[in-house]
Write a protein that binds this DNA or RNA. Structure first.
Length: 474
RNA sequence: GGUCCCAUCGUCUAGUGGCCUAGGACGUGGCCCUCUCAAGGCUAAAACACGGGUUCGACUCCCGUUGGGACCGCCA
């Protein structure tokens, strides 16, 4: 069993391509087959090496490892020309001297008359070359009968051969076109299953005719439904981030993106979250739906959060460092105690939806100079909380340990003494140490911060209240 | 316009003729928990596009209508 992912390097690896790659990869891994990466770069004007690198980078980040390749079609032009020569020799293909401009004019003409644009076959039976023109080569498509695609997802799809166009297989500049190269390569690479987007379904009967012209056995086909944007049209940049690496940059975990993508079209009962091994074990085209799916960023975000919650804090600490640098929470070369960072991360895990969120929240752990949110300061750092904060710092001073349990005991004792609720102390402390009103449990935060830093920050808050007492009583 | 594909809550989906009073998930509302924010738990609103058949019985099968999408390149 051999499958391939065959992107053209005319852009970054995008969401749709990644899902196609993923389904190929899952099918190969499930059946113990071979997954091949092939770069379809026969369009030399639009393909670039940068995009090839970008696609590979995306594949690697997602963990979609391939067994053979990457192969490049531009390395194989001689092979394609031989196949074309053979077809021409057998009369299964012919030279066409129509110029691209003439063809385009005729196409527009047909379209404006509401007719189906189709090559009129005027060069089909030409005996002599047309002087002064370099011809392209067209495949002679059968014009009667039917071609039936037996698709693993869509079932039997029937095409009338008269509808099939004599497609160009070799351009007048001598380079081969997609419909030829894809067949030749799939044959050469002994691809057994062609898994791709259903935007290729209409090409399939033409390609089947090519297989037959070469006398090769057909692979199985599986045409995956498209991924759509919120407006139900084909997903594109208009719909926001579509490049896989953009999700990397936004702080998504590759496993989350994989998990999200696989559920777009595939399902396994009611299960939503899958370990990679489960995906490999359960994957089958039996459970792939036929309908196109709308890409829902909200659900992906939720899944990412689930993956962050389930991740080891140590792992997240490693992953978050680039985001800390980007957010200027730490600076290049600044030493960071990774064990301690992991402890800080652990307190924030379930409130971060992305690594970027996590980095932002980590700021008050790593930057000692706390900036108070104005509203929070007004509300919680005032005369009312002043005695409590003073009491607290005195008690903390006397504390030998600094664990969650010990801290809670001290807090409880102080609020009881003052006859107030825990929040009356916890919130002012929260503002004192984080600058704001939202954070993990206050005892966990203080425990990570440590005694010295905690007392310093509370002391600073006390000083701030003294310097800048709130205005009139309201 | 032609060809082809598709059709269950707003979105992703379960459902393979009786198990459906249509299930789960995201999102949304409410409640609980609670030192804040989350997470978690409970709960609510929310769908079989429509019309004909077939059948004792249709979300499930067939036909049509409507709606959406893809493709129609010397792009892939």
């Amino acid at each position: 069993m051999r499958v391939r992912f065959a992107p053209s390097p005319t852009g970054f690896l995008h969401i749709g391509g990644a899902r196609t790659a993923l389904f190929n990869w899952l099918y190969a891994r499930h059946h113990g087959g071979t997954f091949i990466l092939r770069i379809e770069d026969t369009d030399r004007s639009r393909s670039t090496d940068e995009y090839i690198d970008a696609i590979i980078e995306g594949m690697k980040w997602l963990g979609l490892d391939w067994d053979e390749g990457p192969f490049r079609q531009t390395d194989r032009f001689d092979v394609y020309r031989d196949y074309v020569k053979k077809l021409v020799g057998e009369g299964k293909a012919y030279y066409c001297y129509c110029s691209p401009e003439e063809l385009e004019a005729r196409r527009q003409e047909a379209l404006s008359q509401g007719k189906t644009p189709k090559y009129d076959g005027r060069c089909r039976n030409l005996r002599e070359p047309v002087p002064g023109r370099t011809p392209a080569v067209r495949f002679r498509m059968p014009q009667e009968g039917y071609t039936v695609v037996d698709d693993m997802i869509k079932g039997k799809v029937e095409f009338e051969n008269v509808q099939l166009d004599d497609l160009i297989i070799l351009r007048s500049d001598g380079t081969p076109t997609y419909n030829l190269t894809v067949v030749v390569d799939d044959v050469d690479m002994k691809i057994t299953h062609v898994i791709r987007g259903d935007d290729h379904l209409n090409n399939t009967p033409k390609q089947m005719q090519l297989y037959q012209a070469f006398g090769y056995p057909l692979p199985r086909f599986a045409h995956l439904p498209m991924i759509l944007g919120a407006d139900k049209t084909r997903l594109s940049k208009r719909h926001g981030a579509t490049s896989v690496m953009a999700y990397h940059d936004m702080g998504y975990l590759p496993g989350a993106l994989i998990n999200y993508l696989v559920r777009l079209g595939w399902s396994y009962g009611d299960q939503e979250v899958f370990a990679q091994e489960e995906l490999v074990r359960y994957f089958s085209f039996e459970n792939v739906g036929k309908a196109a799916a709308v890409f829902n960023p909200e659900k992906l975000l939720w899944l990412n959060q689930q993956y962050i919650i389930a991740s080891a804090p140590e792992r997240l600490a490693e992953l978050v460092v680039p985001f800390l640098l980007r957010e200027n929470v730490i600076s290049e070369g600044q030493p960071v105690d990774m064990g301690w960072l992991a402890r800080a991360v652990k307190t924030l895990q379930e409130r971060a939806k992305t690594l970027a969120d996590l980095a932002k929240s980590l700021r008050y752990y790593l930057v000692g100079d706390v900036q108070y949110d104005a509203k929070a300061k007004d509300k919680f750092l005032n005369e009312k909380s002043l005695p409590l904060l003073k009491d607290l710092n005195a008690e903390l001073e006397a504390l030998s340990g600094f664990s969650h349990q010990e801290l809670e005991r001290v807090f409880r004792a102080i609020v009881e003494k003052h006859g107030v609720k825990l929040g009356a102390l916890a919130q002012p402390v929260r503002v004192a140490v984080t600058g704001g009103t939202e954070s993990p449990g206050i005892f966990e935060v203080l425990e990570v911060l440590g005694k010295e830093e905690t007392m310093r920050r509370i002391g600073k808050a006390i000083a701030a209240i003294g310097e800048n007492p709130p205005g009139k009583e309201s």
